[in-house]
């Protein structure tokens, strides 16, 4: 009994060059796994001291003041959380509704104009948005009555727009994937377009929308330069309440960016910055892993066989 499979590897007319290139192809595929592993290993190597040398109690303390040896991560975690929550509150409705507009309401000609606009938004470097936030947006927010324009909210606003391309494009795919029969069926029994969207299309696209939001969150948590410029970089925990969004905060990413240039290599401070990187890595890893579990990572969309 023979199981028919790919041609035997030693078949005469396969030139040696071909075996080499195919080996390289497999190696390149595997390199992605190796790189993820290397990133993890290097973060761990340089950052592990954070968790070994600093008592957990201090690590989750409220003071981030490295010069005096205070490495409390809580203000940074709170800062990241505040900025992220704010951005999500702004971006999720905007993104999903914009996707609905593009997919269900906009006429084709307008869609052809708006979609490149999303790509343009995705193509604006975060430092450019951060710069504009710093020179143009912050003064406006201060004029609205905040004590300073550099607040968590300023960061959230920028990050919301930066995550919109991700949220819109994935949401749109999810809406597009809802079978046409669903819509037709709903319209056929006399539902309005809005009822159809609300009762049929959105529920059917739910899991795709969740993924859109998750990947948007992943993008927000990891953003660095924009928040570094506009959130005020105050490593303290604002008092609980709606006002906290309008206080200056400091995120994990901004902390690394701002302080890595000034620390001595191998110092505890240096280790802690890598430790923060490790935490960020683990957070985004988890978020993306969950999102991927929801879609099911198979990717191979080409139908094999087919006509021939």
């Amino acid at each position: 009994m023979t199981t028919v499979q790919s041609p035997p590897p030693g078949a005469p007319s396969r030139r040696p060059g071909e075996i080499v290139i195919e080996a390289l192809i497999v190696l390149a595929g595997a390199s992605t796994v190796i790189i993820v592993a290397l990133i993890f290993i290097f973060l761990l190597r340089e950052g592990i001291n954070t968790f070994l040398d600093i008592p957990l109690r201090q690590l989750f303390g409220q003071r981030w003041y490295p010069i005096e040896g205070y490495y409390g991560l809580l203000p940074l975690l709170v800062g990241t959380a505040l900025v992220t929550v704010g951005a999500v509150i702004i971006a999720v409705p905007l993104g999903i509704v914009a996707a609905i507009y593009l997919g269900e309401i906009a006429p084709t000609w307008l869609r052809e104009i708006l979609k490149p606009l999303i790509e343009i938004l995705a193509g604006i470097p975060s430092i450019v948005l951060g710069f504009l936030g710093w020179v143009a947006l912050a003064p406006i927010i201060q004029n609205l009555g905040a004590p300073t324009g550099l607040t968590a909210f300023t960061g959230s606003l920028l990050l919301a727009y930066m995550s919109l391309p991700t949220i819109i494009s994935i949401s749109e795919d999810a809406l597009y994937a809802v079978p046409k029969e669903y819509r037709d069926g709903s319209l056929a029994i006399g539902a309005t377009q809005w009822q159809t969207i609300w009762r049929v299309v959105l529920p059917a696209a739910r899991s795709g929308l969740v993924i859109a939001v998750m990947l948007g969150i992943g993008r927000v948590i990891g953003e660095t330069m924009a928040v570094l410029l506009v959130t005020g970089n105050a490593a303290n925990i604002p008092a609980f309440g709606p006002g906290m969004f309008f206080s200056p905060v400091r995120t994990m990413t901004a902390t690394i960016a701002a302080e890595m240039g000034e620390v001595a290599q191998g110092s505890l401070h240096y280790n802690v910055l890598f430790g923060i990187g490790l935490i960020l890595f683990l957070i985004t890893f988890t978020v993306n892993w969950l999102a991927a579990r929801l879609v099911g990572v198979n990717g191979a969309r080409r139908s094999r066989g087919g006509l021939l």
Binding site: M1, T2, T3, V4, Q5, S6, P7, R304, G305
Partner: peptide, 21 residues
Amino acid sequence: SDLTEDADFRGVITFNGSDIF
């Protein structure tokens, strides 16, 4: 047929007298 994965073949096919597999 080699391009179709995981199929099961039994028997013999010869071309000019020699087994093509």
